[in-house]
Amino acid sequence: MKKSMIAIGIVLVILVGGVIFLQNVNLNRVGADEYFTQINGEGTKTEDKMSDGGIHIRYEYELPAYDKDGNQKTLTFSADKQLRENAYLLLFVKNGKDVTSYQEVKDEELPKKVAEVLE
């Protein structure tokens, strides 16, 4: 009886830990290459009609991006809102070209070679 209670307790701890882990980890970033870019321009506004009749607005950006070594690649990605002009972004890229996620970073977080190119 005691062994089965311990086993059930261990399973519950593993399940709760797994749920907490999945809530705090963005799987779109796991295993992705990192590129840095700076927002220049307003992006191209696109409107998609949803099945319920609503309108979904997105902004598409095509910008040069740089890996930590300063190698350039032009990447295309979209956002649900217009991004702040001159903001620095960290792009998460899978399959060499698919931007799966992004986050804004401060200029002091840029790798040295990237900062030299973007500033």
Rank of each mutant, 00 (worst) to 15 (best):
residue 83 L to K: 00
residue 41 G to R: 01
residue 71 N to E: 13
residue 70 G to A: 07
residue 80 D to V: 13
residue 92 F to Y: 13
residue 37 T to R: 00
residue 99 V to A: 04
residue 36 F to Q: 02
residue 104 E to T: 15
residue 16 V to R: 03
residue 34 E to R: 05
residue 82 Q to K: 14
residue 101 S to L: 00
residue 53 G to K: 09
residue 110 L to E: 01
residue 37 T to D: 05
residue 57 I to S: 10
residue 5 M to P: 02
residue 13 V to G: 04
residue 17 G to T: 01
residue 44 T to I: 12
residue 93 V to H: 01
residue 65 A to S: 12
residue 12 L to W: 06
residue 112 K to F: 08
residue 88 Y to G: 04
residue 61 Y to H: 03
residue 29 R to M: 12
residue 24 N to L: 14
residue 11 V to H: 01
residue 98 D to N: 14
residue 87 A to Y: 02
residue 8 I to A: 15
residue 47 E to H: 03
residue 97 K to F: 06
residue 90 L to H: 03
residue 116 E to Y: 10
residue 21 F to G: 00
residue 22 L to V: 12
residue 58 R to S: 15
residue 48 D to F: 14
residue 113 K to E: 15
residue 99 V to P: 02
residue 100 T to Y: 04
residue 62 E to R: 09
residue 2 K to W: 06
residue 109 E to G: 12
residue 27 L to Q: 12
residue 115 A to D: 12
residue 71 N to L: 10
residue 38 Q to N: 11
residue 64 P to D: 09
residue 74 T to D: 15
residue 57 I to K: 07
residue 15 L to F: 11
residue 116 E to H: 10
residue 89 L to E: 02
residue 70 G to C: 07
residue 112 K to P: 00
residue 41 G to H: 06
residue 67 D to G: 07
residue 30 V to W: 01
residue 96 G to N: 11
residue 38 Q to T: 14
residue 5 M to I: 11
residue 56 H to D: 13
residue 96 G to T: 12
residue 109 E to T: 13
residue 95 N to M: 11
residue 106 K to Y: 11
residue 83 L to P: 00
residue 16 V to I: 15
residue 64 P to S: 09
residue 85 E to V: 03
residue 25 V to Y: 00
residue 106 K to G: 14
residue 81 K to H: 13
residue 97 K to P: 00
residue 44 T to E: 14
residue 59 Y to S: 03
residue 96 G to E: 12
residue 79 A to K: 04
residue 7 A to M: 07
residue 18 G to M: 07
residue 17 G to F: 01
residue 20 I to D: 03
residue 73 K to L: 11
residue 25 V to K: 02
residue 45 K to R: 15
residue 5 M to C: 09
residue 16 V to L: 12
residue 81 K to R: 14
residue 114 V to F: 00
residue 9 G to K: 03
residue 59 Y to A: 08
residue 103 Q to T: 15
residue 49 K to T: 14
residue 26 N to G: 07
residue 77 F to P: 01
residue 41 G to C: 07
residue 46 T to C: 01
residue 4 S to E: 11
residue 62 E to M: 14
residue 94 K to H: 06
residue 101 S to W: 00
residue 10 I to E: 02
residue 105 V to K: 05
residue 20 I to G: 01
residue 6 I to K: 03
residue 86 N to M: 08
residue 26 N to I: 05
residue 73 K to C: 02
residue 71 N to A: 12
residue 28 N to L: 04
residue 8 I to N: 04
residue 32 A to S: 13
residue 113 K to M: 07
residue 10 I to R: 00
residue 22 L to E: 10
residue 45 K to L: 08
residue 63 L to A: 07
residue 74 T to H: 07
residue 75 L to W: 07
